[in-house]
Design a protein around this nucleic acid. Structure first.
Length: 273
DNA sequence: AGCCAGGACAAGT
DNA sequence: ACTTGTCATGGC
């Protein structure tokens, strides 16, 4: 495969396009060659999966340092999802969406992205985040920008953010930027402490409720027991698990959630045909 | 054209 | 403790 510096055999249960475009991250796009292009930790990457080979635009060292962790490359999803198999619903969901992994994004980008996601649709979420990076991030290539730091955003006003057209969320972004850059919300501590600590800390930010907090903990801190409940997951818990989540989800509620979310959502579209 | 979007918050029972 | 209206904006 030309244009790629490095290739590596993927583990089982690894679907690049699916995991990068399933509502966890909002900055990956398919380029003119059908490759996935996005920015991680201030560097642009182009990736492509053919069967069980992953092609990367970076060196092996760079892959090991950044992407291996970002893509949750070394986790054994086979064992985890096999264990989910004792629950019939979850079993079907895992089969249908096999290959989705939980990304480990940067905490600040994750928090900020999911603040923007509230009461919003994915195409528009992407647009707002894209304008945020173009306006206040650093240009790293011709058409690629880093995600602006909390420190940078903490110096801005809601008027400064008006070009984003983020609506009522602009003031939430600023409150988050200020608290995070001051260290009032301590990411290092959230990272090292149990999930419950992060739940209590993150909701101190204006515009961060339970859902956004759980998403940040799951997709930004790798807390796999975090369990974001949006409208779709709420339907699932009410319809299928009125007496609580099954035992087999324990410690991996967040992974289970990811499969169930897509499964329930696609079954809804099915109704309309 | 209008409904709704991977919610949060404040005010009201 | 639950329910309801409101919040900007624009995708579909």
């Amino acid at each position: 495969m030309d244009g790629f510096q490095f290739e590596i055999k993927t583990p089982e249960m690894f679907n690049l396009d699916l995991m990068l475009d399933c509502g966890q991250a909002f900055r990956w796009e398919k380029d003119e060659n059908g490759n996935m292009r996005g920015v991680v930790s201030g560097k642009q990457y182009t990736l492509r999966q053919d069967g069980d080979t992953l092609y990367c635009s970076c060196t092996e060292a760079d892959f090991n340092k950044t992407l291996r962790r970002y893509l949750d490359f070394d986790r054994d999803y086979k064992t985890i999802t096999d264990n989910f198999g004792t629950d019939e619903n979850l079993k079907m969901a895992c089969e249908e969406y096999a290959g989705i992994r939980i990304l480990r994004q940067e905490p600040w980008e994750t928090l900020c992205s999911f603040i923007i996601s509230q009461n919003n649709n994915i195409p528009r979420i992407k647009g707002i985040i894209s304008r945020l990076c173009e306006s206040f991030g650093e240009q790293i290539e011709e058409n690629a920008y880093s995600f602006p730091s909390a420190e940078r955003l903490s110096t801005l006003t809601v008027e400064d953010l008006s070009p984003l057209r983020a609506g009522f969320r602009a003031k939430y972004i600023l409150d988050a930027a200020q608290r995070v850059s001051k260290g009032e919300v301590d990411f290092a501590r959230i990272d090292s402490q149990p999930t419950q600590y992060g739940r209590e800390e993150l909701v101190k930010i204006k515009g961060v409720g339970k859902k956004v907090a759980e998403c940040t903990l799951l997709y930004g801190f790798g807390k796999l027991d975090a369990f974001p409940v949006d409208v779709w997951v709420k339907r699932i818990t009410e319809e299928m698990y009125p007496n609580g989540l099954p035992e087999c989800m324990k410690k991996y509620e967040g992974i289970a959630q990811q499969y169930l979310f897509h499964w329930r959502r696609s079954s809804e579209r099915f109704k309309n045909i």
